[in-house]
Structures are given as structure tokens and as C-alpha cells.
């Protein structure tokens, strides 16, 4: 890993926030999008993630690398969204059209492609697959980010991979 941006002086945090957004912004946005299956929510999640990053820069210690730290914040933001009643109501039931309005930009993604297949995975497999293959974290880092034992992360990765194997033959190889 390169220079640990977050460790620098507090008065430089504003500059660092810029750098962190440049460095991780796009991948965090895409990660949140695939996690939440909704672009608008992903935008919100990116905003909340970097605001949380900025506000907790002074608490960052070198217990994990900054990529893991930021990813952990992003995942927690996504999970907190998913626990909200309106999320459950809008995204996990069939009452979408009756209950409210869905400004969902998913339609720009071909649901048959690799992204669509990942987004269809059950949450517990999707998050591990995303963090391992897309975000390129190691199993111990995934364990830190998700707060699950490494063994559990490995098992979920294996099962998620098995599910993808059938539908993503073109992409998949061991």
C-alpha cells in the first residue's frame, strides 16, 4: 500500500478527503450500487461514506489499511440503509408501485450480464463476492469489513462462486 493518507495531520483533512474521493470514490460508488441495487441510494451511500470518513479521520488508527477502513464504513452505511423500514418496504416487497415512487436507475444495466448476476445473489454471498473479486480484498480484510470470522467469509465466497459459476461461464475460471 502507498502513503497512508488518513494518518496525516488533522488540518489537512479537507485535502485528504479530496484525495480519498479521487482514489476510492468511483469504486465505492459502484460497490454501493451493486450492493443496494439502486443508483440513487448508492449516491447517498457514497455521500454518507465520505462524510463519515471525514468525521472519523481522527479516530483512524493503523489497525487496518485505509482501503479496508473506508470499505468497512461504506458497507456499514449500505447495511444501515437496508435496515431502514422504507428500504424494506420499497425494495423487498411487491408493494413498490402502491407504496411510493421508485427512481431506480438499474435499468441501465443489462441484468443478464455479470453485474446483473452479482446483484441477483443473496446478500451474504454478494457482499463477499464483491469485496473479494471487485474490491480485491483478502479474506482477513473481508472478515474485518463484515465483522464475520474468516472461516465464514471463505465459506460464503465458495458458495457465492458456485452460484455464479453456472450463470457466468464466459467470465468464470478458477
Amino acid at each position: 500500500m502507498g502513503v497512508n493518507i488518513v494518518q496525516q495531520e488533522y488540518e489537512n483533512y479537507e485535502i485528504h478527503l479530496d484525495e480519498l474521493m479521487d482514489k476510492y470514490g468511483n469504486s465505492i460508488l459502484r460497490l454501493c450500487y451493486m450492493y443496494l441495487n439502486d443508483y440513487n441510494l448508492a449516491e447517498d451511500a457514497v455521500q454518507d461514506t465520505f462524510i463519515n470518513v471525514y468525521r472519523s479521520m481522527h479516530t483512524f488508527r493503523n489497525e487496518c489499511n485505509e482501503k479496508t477502513w473506508i470499505t468497512k464504513i461504506a458497507i456499514n452505511v449500505c447495511k444501515s440503509y437496508m435496515r431502514k423500514s422504507w428500504f424494506k418496504r420499497i425494495f423487498t416487497t411487491d408493494t413498490l408501485k402502491e407504496e411510493g415512487y421508485n427512481y431506480n436507475f438499474n435499468t441501465n444495466i443489462d441484468r443478464e450480464n455479470i453485474v446483473g448476476e452479482i446483484m441477483k445473489l443473496p446478500q451474504k454471498y454478494k457482499e463477499v463476492i464483491l469485496l473479494y473479486y471487485y474490491y480485491e480484498l483478502k479474506i482477513p480484510e473481508i472478515s474485518q469489513v463484515l465483522g464475520i470470522p474468516s472461516g465464514t467469509a471463505s465459506i460464503r465466497l465458495k458458495r457465492g462462486r458456485e452460484r455464479l459459476k453456472e450463470t457466468l461461464e464466459d467470465w468464470y475460471y478458477e
Partner: peptide
Amino acid sequence: DVDNILKDMYV
């Protein structure tokens, strides 16, 4: 592949 598919999605 993922980055390519989502290339228009950026901050």
C-alpha cells in the same frame, strides 16, 4: 468487466 460495464458511473 464490472468497471467497464459501470464505466459511466463515477463520482
